[in-house]
Design a protein around this nucleic acid. Structure first.
Lengths: 189, 189
DNA sequence: CACTGTGAATTCCTTCACAGCG
DNA sequence: CGCTGTGAAGGAATTCACAGTG
């Protein structure tokens, strides 16, 4: 979240920002920001604030986003297509390096500039420097695909289906369920 | 999250579930589940566990999801199309009741069974019983659309663009940034 | 007997207040 | 003088341990 904020500030060409200014934008309070950043060392200059460009770079390094990260996208349906064309990944240094699908009608087609491959070829990601995967397949297929990805050496999976994936401890999974997030809203209304 | 879990268990026709069994599936620990559910009253039967169907219905009531909720989708691009066709909303009782876009090429076209309307018509949601909106527009346009939605009486907004929306306190916003979630993974790898 | 519901203990996170520095 | 960095205080969430119940 902080990396995204500092990246955006960089494009606005603001050289520094104080914890108070940043707190207003992120809807946090200033001590929270100072405490969070201080966990990873001293970022700011007393009397001035945080240098935008330098802080962005340091956060990138901490998050291991300073080297471009390749990700595989599994599922070339409507959601997969939307993700493949999403410009926001660049902010975090991600590149969709491969797209897989199991439908004959999709395999061989191009999405953006990438040729869709058969899911049977997921095993090839190990030798292609891909350790991250985005799962955009129906919930029923998610676990089977996750198993293939784990076997192929994936270390991180972003799961976009509403189900819990069973993976070895060494693999990190983040699940996003859009319907569930929407489901939190009526309670507050 | 609990509602999703209990809804899924219902389709598996399991009549009851204990906090221990549920903890294994959700990767939580049993006291956490008991404490969470107890905040809203007694759900379970001692010696047995939680009745699946009844608990799902009670959670639905608490979350105000027992009456069907209409949502407006703004943005009929690739992401909007993916969302319009996503089957997961039914679990939470949501129905996409209107779709808006500002591109002439999209207006009048149908997505699923819904005719895309001009964003200029967002004001009509007030009289159509729509209080929820899903924002699937580019980040640059998000704030302007949010303003229109708020003016039209929207009470909850699910924002899928990587930006902070300024809205009155009475409006609840949930933001999902897929790229940011992906950005958390390399740190753990 | 198995499991829930819940006060108490613990741990974690947030906020405060101010020393210290550019 | 303004703002960071940080120990200390305060508050919130989690976990424990067990009484209570079908």
């Amino acid at each position: 979240m902080y990396l995204r904020a500092f990246s955006l500030l960089k494009t606005e060409e603001q050289p520094t920002i104080s914890s108070r200014q940043l707190a207003l934008r992120l809807h946090l309070n200033p001590p929270q920001i100072r405490k969070d950043l201080s966990y990873f060392g001293a970022f700011g200059t007393r009397g001035i604030g945080y240098p935008v460009a330098a802080t962005a770079e340091r956060l990138r390094g901490i998050l291991k986003l300073d080297v471009p990260q390749k990700a595989a996208l599994v599922g070339a349906g409507r959601l997969g297509n939307a993700i493949a064309s999403y410009p926001g990944f660049a902010t975090f240094g991600f590149e969709i390096a491969a797209i897989f699908d199991n439908a004959d009608s999709k395999i061989g087609q191009t999405v953006g500039k990438i040729v869709v491959e058969d899911t049977a070829r997921i095993g090839t990601i190990r030798n292609r420097g891909i350790h991250l995967a985005i799962l955009a397949v129906p919930a029923e297929a998610a676990q089977a695909v996750a198993d293939k990805l784990v076997a192929a050496g994936a270390k991180g999976i972003l799961n976009l289906s509403p189900c819990y994936l069973e993976v070895p401890r060494r693999v990190k999974v983040v699940t996003i369920d859009i319907a569930m997030e929407l489901g939190t809203l009526p309670y507050y209304m």
